[in-house]
Design a protein around this nucleic acid. Structure first.
Lengths: 343, 343
DNA sequence: ACGGATATCCAAAGCGCTTTGGGAGGAATC
DNA sequence: GATTCCTCCCAAAGCGCTTTGGATATCCGT
């Protein structure tokens, strides 16, 4: 059924060498010949045998990923979404994933083993922290890698894809300020993660520019579950001087926050404004909230796919991808934001 | 650095054939010789090249998995945990995973493509429903597979690993009845999933045996998030004739249920008893609840690992695993169950 | 018209493993 | 003592691809 190189070459009256070269984009093959080859590939449905390629090239055609299994990271709703993007893209190119579950304390060993195993051509890194030691480690491993997110305080000389968290929350905060809000609360992700730090920074910057400051009593850091959103919001509402607006680092957090707000009998977009970061989780669309949510939006799945593309492109030496990408999140205004209530 | 078969054979003064046979457990090799080979492997750290093995044997050494990306299934907290078990075990044997994200409507195509690609030696199936059509399909694909869970209404002639959901909830219900409870509520997983159906069945059976019945007003089916646990519990509590006990299909659901109960000012284990099914999620231990939870316990991660073991064993034709396994969940009594309150 | 580029193509040698098809030597059989 | 049968081992042929090291033919300027 399935043809191989040899048969394809025979069929074309060419040598395996030439066919191989034609397929792999070598220059020393006639343009017309290449077209013939490509045509034959289409007709026969020829697909190179990956095992043979691996053996001949020494490439693994797979990318390694250390799957964090620490409490509160694994099983994270966002993880699955990102993974889906990554996997979807990888599968298109017939690349495999090597998932290595690992507790944080074993991560270094796991990375080293993975890099040394020859089973992966590249590694991928996520859940960046400030001054993340894993970057230096990966650099020393002499294996290509791409980071999702970026560290803080490290030199920037490593490949990453991140969204501009600072700007996202800066923009969101500025909008709230323009609407007259002065007391704004923040329900953020885990304190040690870089994106949380940046989002807070963006918020602080916008506040500072308008002579406002952030009341630390109105800041909560936690895992990104709706439960935590709820628990974080409640004390804010009971505060002697409650906020008139709140920023959430995820629509999942917002889910809980909204519940707490409803329960307090307040009206969203009216009594209190809310902006959440939207990772575009298919199960949780901000427009489907009882009051549609104003969000800063950036697709997590798209990020996964893009990282896969870059990793694969790097391995195959195809295309030329920027080493560093910073995606801008879109600020999308819906009904959950409104002018600050008059006292 | 890394030795290969040839070098290893030379070192031992044997042929590649013999060394290969010794390693792969062929009978026609002297026991003593085999020991020498094994010893040499230990000393040199020899690891066979997977690409070469793949090429020579035609085996892929990887197992395929269609990752459901439907709303409410993907990103499920439980999915990551199961995946971790699967991956952990696979990595030990140097097996890869091929994750294929797919929407339910594309699943069949995805399975077929995967099976035909030659990239996987076996498939794995989860989230079983009643009369699940995927089983017949997989059987027709002539590729080994193992099912996590089991269907209902199908003949049982396929390999699966499941927990005895019926017994688990039967046992739990019986305990509650013995404690004097008569009105018991159920917060279950999605209605179409086989495990939900079986758990309800187990509950019904125990009730029936004691001349009790289930009030459908006290049954909720939903995604297994704490949010849904909360939302499901609330109406129960507001019922004219509220339950004195409740069964939850997951500790995640219990999280929300507990919150609703607390909020209603009731005391768990006293005013109302609660038993939850515990998948042994590392982030959510039943003993850490404010009132430690009585649970039916069965580790999801262990199930993942076991399935990987069986799949890999089957591919390598090593070991002899039962085709069908039904794990019994343990009923562990903690403080959330107590005698029914006297009226 | 001729040496030297230049453009195209090919034969063959691996990559590291498994597996086929023996072969040597000693034990068992008749 | 000749034949058969095990036991244990080996040489060599792939698996399907990439890549090295030429070949051959065409084309150029002089």
């Amino acid at each position: 059924m399935a043809v191989n190189l040899k048969q394809l070459a025979e069929l074309l009256g060419l040598s395996q060498t030439t066919v191989s070269r034609a397929l792999n984009g070598f220059p020393e093959v006639n343009a017309e010949t290449r077209q013939r080859v490509l045509q034959a590939v289409r007709e026969t449905g020829y697909r190179p045998n990956r095992a043979a390629q691996r053996l001949a090239t020494g490439k693994a055609y797979s990318i390694g990923m250390v799957m964090p299994i620490a409490p509160g990271i694994d099983s994270d709703v966002h993880f699955g979404e990102f993974l889906a993007g990554l996997a979807e893209e990888a599968v298109k190119h017939d690349f495999h994933f090597v998932l290595n579950p690992s507790a944080p304390e074993d991560e270094e060993v796991t990375f080293r083993r993975l890099a040394a195993s020859g089973n992966v051509d590249a590694l991928f890194l996520a859940y960046m922290r400030a001054n993340d030691p894993r970057i230096a480690m990966l650099k020393s491993l002499s294996i290509p890698f791409v980071v999702h997110g970026r560290s803080i305080g490290e030199s920037r000389d490593y490949p990453f894809l991140d969204i501009d968290n600072t700007s996202a929350f800066y923009d969101a905060t500025r909008l709230l300020i323009q609407l007259g809000h002065q007391r704004i609360a923040l329900i953020n992700g885990p304190e040690y993660l870089a994106f949380s730090i940046r989002r807070k920074k963006g918020m602080l910057r916008a506040l500072a520019e308008h002579g406002l400051s952030l009341d630390e009593a109105l800041v909560q850091h936690s895992l990104m579950t709706d439960e935590h959103g709820y628990r974080s919001m409640q004390p804010f509402l009971q505060h002697a001087n409650p906020p008139t607006a709140v920023l959430c680092s995820s629509t999942v957090l917002a889910l809980g926050a909204v519940r707490a707000i409803n329960q307090a009998g307040l009206k969203i977009g009216d009594d209190i404004s809310l902006i959440a970061h939207d990772d575009v989780l298919p199960m949780l669309k901000p427009e489907n909230f009882s009051v549609p949510l104003t969000t800063t939006r950036s697709s997590l799945r798209a990020a996964g796919a893009r990282i896969a593309t870059r990793l694969i492109g790097g391995i195959l030496k195809r295309g030329d991808y920027p080493e560093q990408e910073l995606w801008r999140a879109e600020l999308i205004v819906r009904a959950s934001t409104g002018p600050a209530p008059q006292k």
